[in-house]
Computed example of a mutant assay.
Amino acid sequence: MDRIWIFYAVLLAASAFALWRGGAPERLVGLALLLAAVSTQVLQDDMPIRFAGVELKVLLVDVALLGVMLAITLNADRFWPAWATALHILGIGAHLARAISPDVIRLTYAVLAAAWSYPIIVLLVIGTIRHASRIRSKGWDLDWSRQDPTVR
């Protein structure tokens, strides 16, 4: 259980950093990740039956997060959201693997569904650092690909 609280602490710190120093894509992803983590914690099954079958409520949270991340990826003037979205799709793949083959071991399903969250947080932090660096060096940084560069 300690690893879960460590994950939440790291996620909270990364999201706070993104809200403080990030552009709109970083802030939105940080908030979406926090909301998804809280939703997952509230909606997932009780411990004795957790990951015994497809965690449908968690899958729905993951699909909703995927929709948000896809929208950000398609509109952001950044490359890191594409990597984060791809990693999140791998996590959704764990749900599909469990649905296709119920023989998948519970622990394997749990690890595959959650393991991609850590590199996504790292990408959020890196994206925030790079955004802050561009602001320092150029004085501005576009958030969205369709944004007029003359409007800051």
Rank of each mutant, 00 (worst) to 15 (best):
Q41A: 08
Q41R: 11
Q41K: 11
V42E: 00
V42A: 09
V42F: 06
L43H: 11
L43T: 06
L43K: 07
Q44H: 11
D45G: 07
D45T: 11
D46C: 01
D46F: 14
M47Q: 04
M47K: 08
M47P: 00
M47F: 10
M47G: 08
M47N: 00
P48H: 15
P48G: 10
P48T: 14
I49L: 14
I49N: 12
I49R: 15
R50T: 09
R50N: 10
R50L: 15
F51R: 11
F51E: 13
F51W: 13
F51Y: 14
A52M: 13
A52C: 09
G53K: 15
G53N: 15
G53E: 15
G53I: 08
G53M: 13
E55N: 08
L56Y: 03
L56Q: 04
K57T: 12
K57R: 11
K57H: 13
K57N: 10
K57M: 15
K57A: 14
V58E: 07
L59A: 08
L59Y: 11
L59G: 06
L60A: 12
L60P: 01
V61C: 04
V61L: 05
V61M: 01
D62H: 12
D62Q: 11
D62E: 00
D62F: 09
D62V: 09
V63T: 13
V63G: 13
V63L: 13
A64F: 09
L65R: 02
L65H: 03
L66N: 02
L66M: 07
G67F: 04
G67N: 09
G67V: 06
V68A: 12
M69R: 01
M69G: 03
L70I: 01
L70R: 01
L70P: 05
L70F: 04
A71C: 05
A71H: 09
A71D: 06
I72C: 02
T73C: 06
T73A: 04
T73L: 04
T73Y: 02
N75H: 14
N75R: 15
A76N: 03
A76E: 05
A76W: 05
R78A: 05
R78I: 03
R78C: 01
F79P: 00
F79V: 10
F79T: 05
F79N: 05
W80H: 13
P81W: 02
A82S: 09
A82W: 02
A82P: 02
A82N: 01
W83M: 06
W83G: 04
A84T: 11
T85D: 02
T85N: 00
T85V: 00
T85C: 04
T85E: 00
A86G: 15
A86F: 15
A86Y: 15
A86P: 12
A86T: 12
A86H: 13
